[in-house]
Design a protein around this nucleic acid. Structure first.
Lengths: 196, 196
DNA sequence: ACCTGAACACCGTTCAAGT
DNA sequence: ACCTGAACACCGTTCAAGT
């Protein structure tokens, strides 16, 4: 719709935008440099003028996915739910973000808020960081797993060999929140224990 | 050492063993069907007689990595630590296992024990499963992140452009256990709350 | 500042054919 | 039962050269 004429030259943000479109339509397995180049009507090699390699492009995509903080920055649960919502809003969002994070190419905007919120529970600096990372691992791990389950379901629907009990499919509705509540409870306890 | 003569034919377990060797030496990025075939002195296409595709081979590798339960099956912490040790014992173990798990191609032997241990804390069937999965997500998420940090460190040492503060490198020693303790505390609380 | 064109060294998967 | 040989449709990355 708002795609620029093919004659226009592109900058970094155009490349990221094209990558987001390819991700939305093809998922992470389909997010190749060639497809991104095609989306921009450009040769693959052109992408390497903007980014030194694919991972750094993926890091820029990840930054866009996790966005900048919006949730109530004082509430651990709200922060975690909001992070999860951002991941769920994009195909394979959790996997993309997970790898960028692990490679140290992405600063998670919500992490600082999580550390602060954990601190307000009464945790010292180091335990608050540990708590924040525990939250992040839980949220990303859970969402990653869930999004891959979607893939498997789609693939299973395409061929026949699968017979996934459909009555259990949306039975997991509140499982994320339940597990999250458990982790929050753990953080509270740690705080009150170190208190005395 | 105990490699069979190149003339011998292979079965599934030979293929998995070769894949484990390739994984140990080259990591997940180097674990290609061609390298596995080379390791067996065989054409790539031969692998497809044993496994329908790469993912199912990876699932067999994953099953080998997570092994069969050995730890004290009644202790949540011991189970989680033991799972983590198995993942750490293999290059990119967490990533390999994570994808097989998410695709539903791997049954985690420790999961049943985790559910049981959570039940013994006083949790009902469904909350015990949620607790078990929360543990699994934490362990895999944490270890995955840690193993990718290793990659980044190795890659960073190879080129120069990296300057990762070395004084923080092994400062994380007890962070896994600390986060784990938090999650365990959360499970305990959930149990005692639903108790009354 | 941004892109082309061509090449290099790889991938996973399929399939007819062999023993 | 297990493997070969050849092909297909892809990959990420590099580099000299163009405008």
């Amino acid at each position: 719709m708002s795609a620029p004429p093919a004659s226009a030259r592109n900058d970094k943000s155009d490349v990221v935008a094209a990558a987001m479109r390819v991700l939305a339509e093809n998922g992470l397995p389909g997010l190749s440099m060639r497809r991104i180049a095609d989306e921009l009507d450009v040769q693959v090699s052109a992408l390497y003028w903007h980014f030194p390699n694919k991972q750094s492009l993926l890091a820029a995509v990840s930054a866009q996915i996790v966005g900048s903080g919006e949730a109530d920055a004082g509430d651990l649960t709200a922060l975690a739910v909001s992070l999860r919502d951002r991941l769920l809003a994009h195909q394979d969002g959790a996997e993309v973000v997970s790898s960028s994070l692990a490679l140290g190419l992405l600063e998670l905007p919500a992490r600082a808020d999580l550390v602060r919120a954990a601190g307000e529970l009464g945790l010292d600096a180091v335990p608050a960081e540990v708590a924040a990372d525990t939250f992040v691992h839980y949220v990303i791990g859970y969402t990653f797993h869930e999004q891959q389950r979607l893939h498997a379901a789609v693939a299973g629907a395409a061929d026949d060999s699968v017979d996934l009990v459909p009555d259990r499919v949306n039975e997991r509705e509140g499982d994320f929140e339940a597990g999250l509540a458990m982790v929050v409870a753990g953080a509270r306890i740690s705080a009150s224990v170190s208190d005395r």
